[in-house]
Write a protein that binds this DNA or RNA. Sequence first.
DNA 1: GTGAAAGCGCTAACAG
DNA 2: CTGTTAGCGCTTTCAC
Lengths: 326, 326
Amino acid sequence: MVSSVDVAKLAGVSQATVSRVLNNPEKVNAPTLEKVNAAIRQLNYRPNAAARSLISRKSGIIALFCGQLDEPDNAEFANKAVINAQQKGYTVEIHIQNPEKPESVFNAILNTQAEGIIIGPLIIKGMAIEYLKTSGIPYIFCGSSGGREGITVGMDNHSAGKLAAEYIRSMKPEAVGWLGGNQSDLRLQERYQGFVEGMKESGVNIVKVTGDMEDIELSFTAMMAQKQRPDVIVSATDYYAGYALDFLYDYGYAVPEDIAVLGIGNSRQSAMNYMSLSSIGLPGDINIYEEAINRLAAMIDNSEKGNRGPADVKPVIYERRTTRRK
Amino acid sequence: MVSSVDVAKLAGVSQATVSRVLNNPEKVNAPTLEKVNAAIRQLNYRPNAAARSLISRKSGIIALFCGQLDEPDNAEFANKAVINAQQKGYTVEIHIQNPEKPESVFNAILNTQAEGIIIGPLIIKGMAIEYLKTSGIPYIFCGSSGGREGITVGMDNHSAGKLAAEYIRSMKPEAVGWLGGNQSDLRLQERYQGFVEGMKESGVNIVKVTGDMEDIELSFTAMMAQKQRPDVIVSATDYYAGYALDFLYDYGYAVPEDIAVLGIGNSRQSAMNYMSLSSIGLPGDINIYEEAINRLAAMIDNSEKGNRGPADVKPVIYERRTTRRK
DNA sequence: GTGAAAGCGCTAACAG
DNA sequence: CTGTTAGCGCTTTCAC
C-alpha cells in the first residue's frame, strides 16, 4: 500500500507537505505542488480514509436501515435517501433487514462508524431502539415509525388509514378486508388503527389478515371462503395489494366489479395502466426523503437534538381503476 | 468519545487488556474479564472502527455500484447482493448512479476504503474502468457488463437477445420494434447485438428506439405512427416493457392481439397476473448474486486474480400473456 | 513555505 | 495472564 510517506520521498519533500497539497494546496508553492501532484499520480496514491477519520472523528458515512428492496416502498425510500445523502457528500452504508431474523440487522448499530442513522420501512424489534439511543449517533425515522422515540419524517400513517376508511365508506361495502402485512411493522399498525377509527360506527364488518406473504396467501384464501366475504379490500401497502390483485385474478374475480382494491403508499407501479391501483399517498410535490436527510445532516453538524418533533405529512387519495365503480 | 483507555482506567487494567477482552477473551482471567466488561457496559464503549482498520488494513466494506432502485433490475441486484454480502459479514457501501451525470458516481472509487467492488446494472462511462483498474481493489461485474475488462457474473446478454429473436420469429411478425434503453448501457447493447444476429436473414424490419424514458416516449410514439408499424415489441428490459404496455393501453392497442410485447430480465413484476409479461431471464434456481459475492470474497481473501473468466448464464424464456396469441 | 514531531484509538509483538 | 511499547497513515501545531 502506497502511503503519503512514499509520495513524499519520491517528490523529495516532507510528508507534511504531501498532506498540505491534499488539504490546503493554496498554502503550497506552485512548483512544489506540481512535484507532489506528479508523484501522487505516478504512484497512484490514494489517501487512507481510516487514518483520516481517526483524526477528524468524522467518517462521512450515513447508515441506512430498511426492509428488502423487492418491496417498492423500501426501494423508493432507499433510492431517494441514498441519492440525497450522496448529493450532500455522504457515503451511505446500507443495511437490509432479513425478514427471517429481523433483529439481527440492528447489531450493525453497535459497530458502525456512521455519523448519522436513517431508518426506513422495516420491522423494529429487539434491542433496536435501545441500541439507537445509547449509540449517541443522531438518528431519524423516515417512512418507518419509531413511535414516540426520536423524530420521524414521513406520511402520517394514522391519517392514511383513516382516509382509506372514509373513502371506501362512500362505496357502501357489505364487508371489508384488511390486508395488514407484518404485525411488527409499526407503520402498518398505525395505518390499521387509523382505518379502524375511520370505520367506527359504520357497522361494516372488517376481516383482518396479517403476516408476511406466505402466511397471507393462506389467510387470504380463508377470508374469501367465508360466507360474508369482503367486496372491498384495503391493503396496508401497495405491495400486498399487488398480490391481492394476483389472487383475485386467479380465483376468477373481476376488479373492481366484484371486489374493489385500495392500496396505501402510491408506489410508481400503482400508477401504471396495467396495474392502475387506487392508492393513498403523499401529495405529488413533497420530497420527504430530502427533508429527512436535511434534518439528519443538521443534527450531525450542529449536534442539534432533533426535538423539532415529527413531520407527519397528510396523505391524499389517488383514485384509479381498482376502485372506480360505475 | 470514550476510548479503550477510559475503559482501562475504570477497570483498573492496562489498555492492552481491554483490547484482549475484545479480541481474545479466552486469554483473559475470568475476574479481569468481568471487570472490563462491566466498565465497557458502564461507559457504553464502542471500539473505533477507523483505528482498527488502520492497523488491519481491512475495512470489512464492499462498495456496490448500481443504477436507480426504481428499476426492478437494479433493486433486485442491490437487494440480493447486499443480503449475501451481509451474510458474509461485510458492510455494504452503496453508490447509486444519477442518470443525469452518470460519470460522477465513479469518483467514489478514488476514495473508498472498500476491500472489494461489485458493479451492477448501470451506465459505465468516463473514467470508470480506469479508476477500477488502478484502484488495486478487486472488482466484479454482476448483471452489468464490463465488456472484456474484469470478470462478469450474470446472464449472457447476447444469448438473451438472440433467444428473444428466435422466439418472436416463430410469431411471424411483419415488423418488430426494439425498445433499447440507454445507449451507454453495455448490457443493453449486448442484448441488442444478440437480437440483431438472431433476426438476421429473417427479412423482418427492425425499428429501434433508444434513450431514457423521456426520450423513449417521443420516439415510441413516432415508431407507432409509421405506416409499417411493429406488431411485436421487444424491450431490452422489463422496466421499459412496462412503460410500453402503458403507452399501448393509452393508444388503444390490445396486447397481445394487436401487438405482442416481450421483455428481458424476468423481473418479479413480470410474473404477476396483472402484468403477465413474457420475458427472458435466468433459469429459476440460479442465484448469480450469491455467486458474485462468493467470487468477490475469494478475490479479497486470496488476492485471487479473478481470471477464471466470465460466468455467463444462459437465459430461458418465460412465456406469459403479452405474447400468448392463440 | 516547509519540516519536525506529536498524537488520533487501536492491535500486536515482546517482556515479565 | 498482564503490562509496556511500537507503530498503522494521516492532520495539525509549532519552529524555522
